[in-house]
Amino acid sequence: MEQDVRETGKGITFGLSAYCLWGSFPLYFALFEGIPAFEVLIHRVIWSCVFLVFVISLLRRWPPVKAALVRPKELGYVLACAIFIAINWGVYIYAVETRHVLQASLGYFLTPLVNVAMGLIVLRETITRMQAVAVVIATMAILFQLFLLGFVPWITLVLAFSFGSYGLFRKKVVLDGLSGLFVETLLLLPLGLLALAFLAQSGASHFTDSPGTALLLLSSGAVTAIPLLFFAGATRRLRLATVGLLMYITPSIQFLLALFVFDEPLSPGKLFSFVMIWVALAIYSGSAWFGRERAATT
């Protein structure tokens, strides 16, 4: 029992570390001001792949990677994951650079509910009545921004649906999170190298602007992988329901940073849409949590 409590404590520490780091990403990507989001994305793919080579070697995790690479027919799902995660990364970097952190935050608040909707529509999963209510409320929040505020919150929608689609295809991949991310970035690596060569040849690359800029771009690999390692440590020690509840820390931190660091305006309409999303998340999380508790006691 004491060992279980100790492991649970470690799991919560790992989980908090992962989600707090992800939540602080706006502060990191704001440092890339003046560098196009597309170029930052290229370097993030390349240096994540390089950094993960060292991590996987250190942890001796090559067997699952090799097993995946010798089955090219099964790499289609991994490639789909790679495309959706690249879209998610690119749009998120763009959101921070253009000071749309509130929209990014809303996108990640919305992601769990998008996952529910995708499971219902694509995988034919069943949901409870209260979870269905949560999805309807979240949909109403987006429609409110779309029709009453007079603009399409495309950053929110792209982030939510790209990450939701990533999760959908990730269910088909047998690789663990660390190995899966490495294979995903490995599949994107040739395209990233070609794009980097094009930028360098055309004189548009910022990598050689200064040693500080080069180090900042190089650091994107470690910044991408380290929270994932913490997350892996959390998922091995905690129940899925606990991990799911902890994930709301990330968009909450982003929301606070948008207001108090990036000074983004929060109109009554935006605030109302956020409140609708929070209500939907509370309904969904409560339904999922108590459902698991009832299942555990029967």
Rank of each mutant, 00 (worst) to 15 (best):
M1T: 01
E2V: 06
D4R: 12
V5N: 10
R6N: 03
E7H: 04
I12L: 15
I12Q: 03
F14K: 03
S17P: 01
Y19P: 04
Y19W: 05
C20Q: 00
L21N: 04
G23A: 07
S24R: 00
S24F: 10
L27H: 05
E33T: 14
I35D: 07
H43L: 03
H43M: 04
H43A: 02
V45L: 05
C49N: 13
V50T: 06
V50S: 04
V55R: 08
I56D: 03
L58N: 04
L59Q: 13
R61K: 15
W62E: 12
L69M: 14
L75V: 06
G76E: 13
V78I: 15
A80K: 04
A80F: 10
I85T: 12
I85Q: 04
A86C: 15
N88K: 00
G90S: 12
Y92D: 06
A95H: 01
R99I: 11
R99D: 13
H100V: 09
V101T: 03
S105I: 05
Y108P: 01
L110E: 06
L110S: 08
P112T: 00
L113E: 11
V114Y: 04
V114I: 15
N115M: 11
M118F: 15
L120D: 00
I121R: 05
L123K: 06
R129Y: 06
Q131M: 12
Q131I: 10
Q131R: 12
V136W: 13
I137T: 06
I137F: 09
A138I: 12
T139M: 14
M140L: 15
A141Y: 01
L143Q: 07
F144E: 09
Q145H: 03
L148R: 14
V152G: 00
P153D: 05
L157D: 07
A160I: 04
A160P: 01
F161I: 11
S162K: 09
F163N: 09
L168D: 07
K172C: 01
V174K: 15
D176F: 02
D176G: 15
G180I: 13
L186F: 13
G192V: 12
L194Q: 10
L194S: 14
A195T: 08
A195I: 04
A195W: 13
A197D: 11
A197I: 08
A197C: 08
A200V: 13
S202I: 09
G203N: 08
A204Y: 13
H206C: 09
D209G: 02
D209E: 12
D209K: 10
P211Q: 01
P211I: 03
T213N: 14
L215D: 04
L217I: 05
L218H: 06
L218W: 10
A222T: 06
A225R: 05
L229D: 03
A232P: 00
A232G: 02
G233R: 01
L240V: 07
T242C: 05
L246G: 06
M247S: 14
P251W: 08
Q254G: 08
L259F: 11
F260R: 06
P265S: 08
P265I: 00
S267W: 01
S267T: 15
L271N: 02
F272I: 08
F272Y: 11
V275H: 00
I277M: 10
I277K: 00
L281H: 05
I283A: 08
G286S: 04
W289N: 05
R292K: 14
R292A: 14
E293F: 02
A295I: 02
A296T: 06
T298N: 06
T298G: 10
T298K: 03
